[in-house]
Design a binder for these strands. Structure first.
Length: 905
RNA sequence: GCCCUGGUGGUGGAAUUGGUAGACACGCAGGACUUAAAAUCCUGUGGCCUCACGGCCGUGCGGGUUCAAGUCCCGCCUGGGGCACCA
């Protein structure tokens, strides 16, 4: 007879698919109980690209899923939604490349993402799924735009208000000394554009020829587009802007009330770039009718001013130039104009030109030559500076080149000759500053400024680097503006949504017009011409976290009740690369909606975690002058390139066509490859697909491994070999519960040491989740399981709570074991165990005994012993005696529960 | 140049308030089971010296504080990120 030894194996695939289907069908994660306290855990919603997910993407989702599941078990009503940010450049570029309509490629990409995400077993409420590209969603994006258009920032109340209050003000006070009713409709429209929070203005913008669109400042890195790395130039165009600048101070100050990483806060601080100083006025010797205004943060250095510099674009540049200097000044202005900002920055040598005119020093009346130079930016401050060469590096270089006086006004500890090198410190005291001599710099600065302000020669002023943000794109794939231009004045369209129309060709036109303009029927309306630009990618993502609270609401962007219940996001997880884009705009829109009293909170994300990058291991071939990425499938198991594979590679990849095998210096027909750890990307052939991992090891293993790799915030390399460890852990757990045929777990009284293991693990895991220390939690699970195995623990009272602890991390295997132990409800609806300190109490402690700071042995003492008794016991110890031989004991240090240290003379 | 972060075995990484550095894994080496392999289990694994007992050195480098420093202070070196003629 054939005996069939049926082994109950850990069949992860079967288990995982079964429970995923079950959870889906029972809508387990779409159930809410509003009597419980709320917890809102959100991931930065994904941008569905054509490449699909790699193992780096789910890292943050796994973390937020663990927290969400944990919070549910702790009795919270958890909102954990997901959606897709699908408008914008990448989707459109992909569509253009593949020649398909972006609507189709987006739909395909989203479906692929959903399939991948679902396989990992996240507890997302898919009922609340949203897409920024759906008209029923972007209707409300357009609605918020309408609010911005119809709002102004009232500096008196320090908040945004409906434009009505501005009109009331103008009606009673007039505008610029003229009654409001005396302005024409056109004039009124133009004036209001200077106040609206969404407005059009003609100005220099970041134009990317290759992408055929303008870009926001945060979408440009080092003069190149963030997407694709194409050159970006400054072009004068009429564009939509959002007036974020009045919010600068609040965006800065409120960083103090949110729990974000230091580095992100710093990045936003720098981006906002607040500097406190003054505008100081300089009369001009040669012109009575003009006055110069400079911005300075260092009024203390005013007696050190020896010249004035204007930017080449400064309004007065040409007006104040004296006849003999006109030619050289014009030439200089012209040459500056031909360069874009990037080219200007690259030129490090000092350049400039004298105007022939002089400014008068406001305090001592000295005549100061006025120059033009590129190092002064027209877009910052007033586009003019007072130059203090003794205390500013750039001014110093300029003075040297043009042979201008260098006047030292600060004396510090640094022994520097200011004729050679500037002193940039703010510590020291003033000299050469008339009756301010001898004062400390800080105090002197304030006194000088007070004097200037009192004499109406200066005004206190705060400047920001933050600029109003460009809000229009000349592209097809974005939200249309709800705007029709009537008599060349923009007017809101009331009937929303304004649906994105069909066009015959959605590729960029390249002439600064959006592809929408080709649909003449759509553009021409009875009232006037429609706005044909579209909104940028960040429009939809600036408020989506609000929509998730009430995603199906047709009357409002979200219902009042839902907003009041869910409030701000408690935990937000996503990449740090959005520091100056999405994260700033979302804060801005939140504050705006708060001002208009649509929401009762003014920060969107209470706690933010930036997950690190998971890097891939690339293989690089040194082909003479360049390094080429080699797809992994062409390397052998030692990571080398063989001659056979090289031939195949040459057929498959054009990059290798003209490379000769001999030139690669093969040894025994093998070429060594260089290893490199870098960002995962398709083009680097180092991408690991989570689908493959789920197939081979299962979703639970993938989840555990991603968490086990290291701290969530850190970047770390992926190494598929290491996954065996966590996979073995799950197998061990399985084998603890099941043997060949049956469940081994019984309802028996647990052993004392098992209780201790359990309770210290409850404590540790709870702590670790609260601190987002998931990697140490996994190792605690491993330690616990090793101990329980050692103890041969089979007690249900131990195993059940243990797998509840594990459920947030490995939801499938926990659910399976839970049911096999006889439970019928889902484990994810059970209760988080609490730990009982009484099981952790020890009655003795093992003390390290160190002599002169070096640990020599350990001794165990009962806790009730006092220091004297312990001291006696320590000195009786053989090893201790050996070390004490011939030495004198200086000191005996006993730190209860920590250590014992003997200091010898 | 300025700001923010890191630097710990062959690798990923542990280490409450300063209190046994290297937990937990991977990898590697040896062993058990097996005809053999896979799987599993056990043992070892920072470096150097020693048959061993044991000792010396060791958290980027150099100083310091302390009974005691990966942890605190001062000065450097270096990886990553951000800002950058911003007055």
């Amino acid at each position: 007879m054939l005996i069939c030894h049926y082994k109950m194996q850990y069949d992860f695939k079967k288990i995982e698919l079964k429970w995923q289907k079950h959870w889906d069908e029972s809508k387990l994660y779409s159930q809410y109980d509003y009597t419980k306290p709320k917890f809102y855990a959100l991931d930065m919603f994904p941008y569905p690209s054509g490449a699909g997910l790699h193992v780096g993407h789910p890292l943050g989702y796994i973390a937020s899923d663990i927290v969400s599941r944990y919070k549910r078990l702790k009795g919270f009503n958890v909102l954990h939604p997901i959606g897709f940010d699908a408008f914008g450049l990448p989707a459109e570029q992909y569509a253009i490349q593949t020649g398909q309509h972006p609507e189709i490629t987006t739909e395909n990409n989203i479906n692929n993402y959903k399939k991948q995400l679902k396989r990992i077993g996240f507890s997302f409420d898919w009922e609340r799924e949203l897409r920024t590209t759906e008209p029923k969603y972007y209707k409300w994006t357009q609605w918020i735009f309408s609010l911005l258009f119809d709002a102004w920032y009232n500096p008196k109340n320090n908040k945004a208000e409906n434009i009505k209050t501005l009109l009331e003000k103008f009606a009673t006070e007039g505008f610029e000394g003229k009654l409001w009713e005396h302005y024409t409709e056109q004039e009124k429209g133009r004036i209001l554009q200077n106040f609206r929070l969404a407005y059009q203005k003609e100005t220099y913008v970041n134009w990317c020829e290759e992408l055929g669109t303008v870009l926001a400042n945060d979408e440009v890195k080092d003069g190149l587009s963030e997407r694709g790395g194409h050159p970006v130039i400054q072009k004068k165009m009429k564009q939509w802007f959002l007036r974020i600048t009045p919010y600068a101070d609040r965006l800065l100050d409120d960083l103090n009330k949110i729990n974000w990483s230091n580095s992100i806060k710093e990045i936003q601080k720098n981006w906002i770039g607040k500097s406190v100083g003054a505008e100081i006025y300089f009369n001009i010797q040669e012109f009575d009718n003009y006055r110069l205004t400079v911005f300075s943060t260092r009024p203390d250095t005013i007696y050190g001013v020896s010249f004035i510099v204007l930017s080449p674009e400064h309004d007065l540049a040409k007006k104040i130039t004296q006849q003999p200097y006109k030619e050289s000044v014009n030439a200089y202005i012209k040459s500056a104009q031909t360069k874009n900002e990037r080219q200007r920055q690259q030129v490090k040598e000092v350049s400039g030109v004298f105007t022939g005119s002089h400014a008068l020093h406001p305090l001592n009346g000295n005549a100061l030559p006025i120059y033009l130079s590129e190092y002064v930016l027209n877009s910052y401050g007033t586009g003019a500076i007072m130059a203090v060469p003794a205390h500013d590096e750039r001014d110093h270089a300029f003075a040297k080149k043009f042979n201008i006086k260098i006047i030292q006004v600060i004396e510090s500890d640094e022994n520097i000759n200011t004729q050679e090198k500037p002193i940039s410190t703010k510590k020291g005291h003033l000299i050469n500053s008339e009756n301010f001599d001898g004062l400390d710099v800080q105090i002197g600065s304030e006194k000088i400024l007070t004097k200037l302000v009192n004499e109406a020669k200066a005004k206190r002023k705060i400047n920001y680097k933050l600029r109003d943000t460009g809000f229009s794109r000349q592209r097809y794939w974005g939200e249309p503006f709800p705007i029709i231009h009537e008599n060349s004045l923009p007017k809101l369209v009331k009937d929303l949504p304004v649906k994105l129309p069909q066009v015959s060709n959605f590729t960029p036109t390249g002439d600064g017009q959006s592809p929408l303009s080709s649909n003449k029927k759509w553009v021409h309306t009875e009232k006037g011409l429609r706005e044909t630009d579209t909104m940028p990618g960040y429009a939809g993502s600036s408020w989506y976290f609000l929509r998730f609270m009430d995603p199906k609401n047709e009357k409002n962007f979200a219902g009042k009740k839902a907003i009041r219940y869910w409030q701000e996001v408690d935990l937000y997880i996503g990449g740090a690369e959005h520091a100056t884009g999405h994260l700033l705009y979302a804060r801005f829109w939140t504050k705006f909606l708060f001002d208009l009293q649509y929401i009762p909170f003014d920060e969107p994300f209470k706690k933010l975690i930036n997950q690190g990058m998971i890097q891939g291991e690339s293989k690089l071939l040194n082909a003479g002058n360049r390094l080429l990425h080699i797809p992994l499938e062409y390397t052998n198991n030692l990571g080398q390139l063989t001659a056979d594979n090289f031939i195949k590679l040459q057929k498959a990849d054009k990059r290798f066509e003209n490379i000769l095998w001999e030139n690669l210096q093969p040894k025994n027909n093998i070429v060594e490859l260089k290893n490199q750890t870098e960002k995962m990307s398709k083009s680097k052939f180092n991408v690991v697909n989570p689908d493959d991992i789920c197939e081979q090891y299962g979703a639970d293993t993938l989840r555990l491994y991603e968490m086990f790799l290291g701290p969530i915030q850190d970047s770390k390399p992926w190494n598929t070999q290491g996954i065996e460890g966590v996979h073995r852990f799950l197998n061990k757990l399985w084998n603890l519960v099941f043997n060949e045929q049956t469940v081994l777990i019984q309802d028996v009284e647990p052993a004392k040491d098992s209780l201790k293991t359990l309770h210290k693990t409850i404590k540790k895991i709870t702590n670790d989740i609260e601190n987002f220390s998931f990697n140490t939690a996994i190792s605690a699970f491993m330690i616990a399981l090793n101990e329980l195995s050692q103890q041969q623990c089979r007690s249900k009272n131990i195993i059940e709570p243990f797998i509840i602890l594990l459920a947030p991390f490995a939801p499938h295997i926990s659910e399976e074991i839970w049911h096999k132990l006889g439970n019928t409800e889902s484990i994810h609806k059970s209760k988080w165990p609490t730990f009982d300190t009484s099981y952790l109490v020890e009655n003795s402690k093992k003390y390290p005994i160190s002599i002169n700071g070096k640990v020599r042995t350990t001794l165990e003492f009962a806790l009730e012993l006092d220091q004297k008794e312990i001291e006696n016991l320590v000195f009786q110890n053989k090893i201790v005696k050996k070390w004490l031989e011939g030495k004198k004991v200086r000191k005996f240090i006993f730190v209860p529960n920590k250590i014992i240290n003997i200091v010898l003379g």
